[in-house]
């Protein structure tokens, strides 16, 4: 495999939720969410009831991937910030810990300057949490070795068949 699987544990998940909910308040924004670079949503906070967050996650990741491709074409490592300005709502997208995408949606009650400032601070905190997660995953793998019990070790053909029977 190219990169290790992301495994999210309760403790870090709660830290992440706390950081993005604080960011939402501090930046005066409507929605803050975190997406893995492959388009999987990690966490979301704010007015998300009427928002299709799954699609948002996938399109954001596609957007970032395409922008990364553009960056490399002109010899840049990455464009670390993307900003989309709309009539009412704006989207601020940034990369955290090289592998996670932080998205902030805000309207006229906030400003790009404020969002950038608060995102920078939250990014530092998120960097630490993701570094923790990665070292935890490595440690568990190394320590447990063969004894590591994947929760899926016992998936049977019947389990899989039952997924499709509905």
């Amino acid at each position: 495999m190219a990169a290790p699987d992301i495994v999210m544990y309760e403790e870090e998940f709660n830290q992440i939720k706390a950081i993005i909910s604080k960011l939402r308040v501090d930046a005066n924004s409507k929605v803050v969410f975190l997406v893995d670079k492959n388009g999987q949503q990690i966490a979301a906070h704010g007015d998300i009831e009427n928002l299709d967050t799954t699609s948002l996650a996938s399109l954001t990741a596609g957007n970032v991937a395409a922008t990364d491709g553009l960056a490399r074409l002109i010899g840049e490592k990455e464009f670390s910030i993307l900003f989309h300005e709309g009539e009412k709502d704006n989207i601020h997208i940034s990369i955290v810990a090289q592998r996670v995408i932080l998205v902030v949606i805000f309207d006229e009650r906030s400003s790009l300057g404020l969002v950038r400032l608060r995102v920078k601070k939250a990014s530092e905190e998120l960097n630490r949490v993701f570094a923790n997660i990665m070292s935890k995953v490595e440690k568990e793998k190394a320590a447990a070795g063969a004894a590591f019990e994947s929760p899926f070790a016992e998936i049977t053909d019947e389990d899989i068949d039952s997924l499709f029977s509905e």
Partner: peptide, 8 residues
């Protein structure tokens, strides 16, 4: 890269 979320 499967994403496994133990929390949720």
């Amino acid at each position: 890269m499967t994403f496994i979320n133990y929390a949720s």
